[in-house]
């Protein structure tokens, strides 16, 4: 049986939700991905080169401060990736759009890599600053717990054969996990007041890093956001193709 009798794709998208159609989503993501790859690459290159070579050393921390251009953006994306998975899981539970569930699935490994980058760069930064690779500081500990949540989420996806069942169960886990991640954050704060400095970026700019570090950091963050986006789009596309192959094979088997 051929694939030509697929449903016609609506010419003009009537709403945001029309991208929930996998075919439509694939067409769209393939159109925007090259531009996104370039943008992400340029932002990362500019942000990191600017940050590494064209900013002064910190008067206290010396050149070690420059790891901030990897550490802060990856930490930010580690949390935001989970948040994106939460939103995607909610969309799957409420509206049953397969693309949403697959996007959540696709984001998890990216998020876990971001978490590992944040943890490793944190350790490398912490060694000269605090004199130790690892301290049970609340922020570090929270990230370690977040890492465990990612592992559990991915493991559950892998363990369940039926894709819809897996999507449902991982969505429930993501919801419950989010609540417990926040709880753990507070619990860990209570458990140990730590070494870690306050937030590097905030809107009220009271405690922010100085401008010379700030602007390249913003560019690096933009690069990480774009990289995350394009990786998730790419991986979602792969997941959609996998499901499509499965569906085609199932149909083949029935004829």
């Amino acid at each position: 049986m051929s694939v030509t009798d697929q449903k016609p794709i609506p010419k003009r998208p009537s709403s945001f939700w029309s991208y929930a159609n996998p075919v439509k989503f694939l067409a769209f993501s393939e159109r925007v991905m090259p531009a996104l790859w370039w943008l992400a690459g340029i932002c990362l290159l500019v942000g990191l080169v600017w940050g590494f070579f064209f900013t002064p050393d910190d008067f206290r921390q010396g050149s070690t401060v420059k790891i901030i251009y990897l550490h802060v953006p990856s930490a930010l994306m580690a949390i935001n990736a989970w948040f994106m998975m939460l939103v995607a899981s909610l969309i799957w539970i409420i509206r049953r759009h397969h693309v949403s569930a697959l996007a959540a699935k696709a984001a998890a490994p990216v998020g876990v890599v971001m978490t590992v980058i944040a943890l490793v760069t944190g350790a490398i930064w912490g060694q000269p600053m605090w004199g130790t690779w690892w301290a049970w500081d609340p922020r570090l500990t929270s990230f370690l717990i977040l890492f465990l949540f990612y592992l559990g989420y991915i493991a559950l996806w892998e363990a369940i054969e039926d894709p819809d069942t897996a999507a449902d169960l991982t969505s429930v886990l993501c919801l419950v996990g989010s609540v417990f991640a926040v709880l753990s954050r507070y619990a860990v704060n209570f458990w140990n007041q730590g070494l870690h400095q306050g937030a590097s970026l905030s809107l009220d700019k009271e405690e922010n890093v100085a401008d010379v570090f700030y602007f390249p950091l913003l560019v690096a963050i933009a690069g990480f956001v774009l990289l995350f986006l394009v990786l998730v789009l790419y991986r979602t596309g792969t997941e959609i193709r996998l499901r499509r192959t499965r569906a085609l094979m199932a149909r083949e088997a029935r004829t």
Partner: peptide
């Protein structure tokens, strides 16, 4: 039948 796809969970992917 083999062509009955309405409501199948894979429907959207074909």
């Amino acid at each position: 039948g083999p062509d009955a796809l309405a409501g199948a969970s894979d429907e959207a992917f074909l």
